[in-house]
Design a protein around this nucleic acid. Sequence first.
DNA 1: TTGAAAGCGCTAACAG
DNA 2: CTGTTAGCGCTTTCAA
Lengths: 339, 339
Amino acid sequence: MKRVSLAKRKTIYDLAELAGTSASAVSAVLNGNWKKRRISSQLAEKIIRIADEQGYAPNMQASVLRRERSSIIGMIVPKYDNRYFGSIVERFEAMARERGLFPIITCTRRDPDLEMEAARAMISYQVDYVIATGATDPDRITDLCAAAGVRTVNLDLPGTHSPSVISDNFQGALELTRRVLDNCEKELARKAPLMFVGGRGTDHNTSERIRGFRAAHHEIGITPDENLILACGYAPEKAEQSLKALAEGIGELPHGMFVNSTISLEGVIRWIRRSDHYGERKPQIGCFDFDPFVALLGENIEMVRQDVPKMLDAIFDIIDNGISDRHLIEIMPIAESMA
Amino acid sequence: MKRVSLAKRKTIYDLAELAGTSASAVSAVLNGNWKKRRISSQLAEKIIRIADEQGYAPNMQASVLRRERSSIIGMIVPKYDNRYFGSIVERFEAMARERGLFPIITCTRRDPDLEMEAARAMISYQVDYVIATGATDPDRITDLCAAAGVRTVNLDLPGTHSPSVISDNFQGALELTRRVLDNCEKELARKAPLMFVGGRGTDHNTSERIRGFRAAHHEIGITPDENLILACGYAPEKAEQSLKALAEGIGELPHGMFVNSTISLEGVIRWIRRSDHYGERKPQIGCFDFDPFVALLGENIEMVRQDVPKMLDAIFDIIDNGISDRHLIEIMPIAESMA
DNA sequence: TTGAAAGCGCTAACAG
DNA sequence: CTGTTAGCGCTTTCAA
């Protein structure tokens, strides 16, 4: 059964026979290499017409097997559950296709083993490039790929063995913190330190954001309380639990907070609603990430939106130009306030 | 340069030489077919050890070229900008991998031409199956794939030329509408009809939901106003504009509404906030879709969450069992209220 | 201007 | 138990 339908698939030999020419001519025409081979435009047109009529689809496996480069490009991404990674993937796909590259994307759910396995699978499919997005261990991926002659670029989280494009986490956090401190000061009529919630203290982005968070406090001559820096992971539940535990421990929480992602913010808002810790007087919040519904929440929330288009421009700049210096490009995120 | 690194890539012939055996033995061992060939476990272990040492990665393009089936499975998806499609993709990937299938996903942004092109590309990569998710014209995709001997299944939006798995839109909308009507009646102390916002009147899902919407009204002996059914597309701006235009046209809007997706809801909420049409007395809303931030919005919102796990179970049931009846499976979505 | 032919890395039938 | 061999469909010299 299945054999029959597959057996029908036309090859360039079938087309050659129908056109009364050779497979190599068909190949050249269908790849647009026919000026180099100086095939008559008559023959070219005929071949194209026949390919069309026959519903011919090239066999990319055969093509890739024979070729030097596959024109397949892989991307590893941690999650599809937020706007940030969603827009990265969507734009990546479009930009890859614009360049005649075939994108292959794998979601690894922040699991280091899955990341490695995904990279291995991509190598087996002969990808020319791997973009490791938000990878927990980018250098291991780079090394694995390098051993197979596959280049890599890191996105969102930096590595040291290949070029990286990330947000300017320090500067972004600095400015976001300034805005929230400012909002707090206006509301309370005095300077007051904020708390920090969410992210992994071990990852580059979180530690840079904490650095920016501290710097903004120092600028106005106050020092954030180190016990109020809760790098408790990204999951909403973690943020919720941490806040609960902290509130039980120290009583009253600061009136403003820096939240490290929309994912963590989910837990934060839930806790605020459930605990009623703040009563009517909602806290001032700054969120290092953007979501359109957050903008409608009705809390006092400042956001920064990571500049995905610029980041991907930088990624493809590296790819298009074959750059492999292990440098770090930092892209400034964009300020967003509630409407 | 690049040539050098690629030239290094080990093949089964290299491994065979190192192991003092033949390529076919290596192939059999590495594919786990070595019981059928009754290769000594000694040789097998040796081959595996050497493959490991050499960092061998199989060339899937060569393998697929030779094989009958590719074990590659394609999915076409409209957008990555909401939780629903995000979770579909994430789960699809995981389930495909569980089965030893390699998933290839393409985002076509609700563009029919892109959908066809994506299907063509997938055929060229020899996919065994295509899942067309939320496709604007599923049957065209099915026909194109069928001509190449590729099976298809439709997800989220149904087609007539291949099996389809979708939400039970009628029943889901019926129950959602009942809940909102009920909330309205409690608040207003009288029965009052709702309005309907968002979606494409031409697509199956929207028209089924409208049918459910009407049925729920009829149950309690009232008739919804046909002018208040705004199937204005999915984009937030469309919803916002439609509401604005309608409010300008007829003055006061109904106190309750059925919103066809979180994407449309974004525009609805924005309009409610900006126009202040409802003042302090927020309208009762029902949203046919789920987003965790919506659950925190502080409006009176009922939601239904489409049952992605069940839908994908049904999809893989069809695939695993090679079913090709053109039937329609409808999965009941799950009720969600604000916390 | 065109065609013949070799071979990419792998699988599977067949022959030991 | 194991090796030899013939392709899968395509690209790319090379020769005409």
